[in-house]
Design a protein around this nucleic acid. Structure first.
Lengths: 109, 109
DNA sequence: GCGAGGCGCAACCCTGTGGTTGCACTACGG
DNA sequence: CCGTAGTGCAACCACAGGGTTGCGCCTCGC
C-alpha cells in the first residue's frame, strides 16, 4: 500500500503551507461544496485569489471541482490528506528509530 | 492531548514545503547529528543556504542545534512531525464526517 | 432577446525568500 | 603564536507566487 510518491506529498505540503489556502479548505469543509464566488464572500481576498488557490488545491488532490451549469462547485477530498499524514507519521517513526540507534552506539551498546 | 496550536502546524508545514529543506532533514536523519558545513557537502547548495534552512527548521521545532566547540551539531526532532501528522489525520477525519453528513442530507435521510 | 450573475484568462505589482558571495570572528592544533 | 577550519553576519540578486484589476464569454431568468 501507500502509493504515496514524493510528488504527491510535495503538492499537498506546498498547498497546506499557505494560510489562505488552509482558510479556503476550512471554509469548504464547514460549508460543504461551494463555488469560488461564495467562498470569496467569506474570505478577506478577491474571487480571483480564491480561484488560484483552488487550482493549487485541486492539483494537490485536496479538492475537486465539478461544473453545474454556470457554477463550479468545489468539494474537499480527504484521501491525499490522510496519505500525507501517514507519510509524515512513518517519517517521524523512522527518525525515532535512527535516533535510538545512534544513542545506542554512543552509549557503546 | 494535542497542544498542537495553529502556529506550530504552520511552521512545520512551511518548513516541509521546501524540497531542499526536506533534503536537509533526510540527510540529517540518515547521517545522524551533523553540522551545516558537513550537510552542505552532500547537498547541491552552499553552506549558507543550508544554514538558512536549518534556522527555519529549528524555528519549526523539527531540528535542534547545539554547540560543540567551534561546531554546531544539528539533530532531527520527531515530536513536532508526529504532532503535525496527527493534526492532519484528525483534519482528514473531520472532512470525512462532514462529507458523510452532507451526503446523508442529500439522500434525504 | 436581453440583462445580470458567474467564470476564465491575462496583465500587472510587489513582497517573500531561496540562493549566492564576501568578510569578520572564534576556536582548535601544531 | 599562527594557520586553518568552522560559524555568523550582511549585502545583494532573481524568481516564484499571492494578490489585484479589467475584460470577454457563457448561462440562467425573465
Amino acid at each position: 500500500m501507500t502509493g504515496t510518491r514524493d510528488g504527491d506529498v510535495d503538492g499537498v505540503l506546498v498547498a497546506l503551507a499557505d494560510p489562505t489556502r488552509r482558510a479556503v479548505l476550512d471554509a469548504l469543509a464547514v460549508s460543504g461544496p461551494a463555488s469560488a464566488t461564495v467562498l470569496a464572500a467569506g474570505l478577506p481576498v478577491s474571487r480571483q485569489a480564491v480561484v488560484k488557490h483552488l487550482v493549487v488545491l485541486e492539483a494537490a488532490g485536496l479538492v475537486s471541482g465539478s461544473r453545474l451549469g454556470r457554477e463550479v462547485r468545489y468539494q474537499v477530498r480527504p484521501a491525499r490528506l490522510t496519505a500525507t499524514a501517514r507519510w509524515m507519521d512513518s517519517l517521524a517513526r523512522d527518525w525515532d528509530e535512527r535516533l535510538v540507534a545512534v544513542k545506542r552506539l554512543a552509549e557503546g551498546g
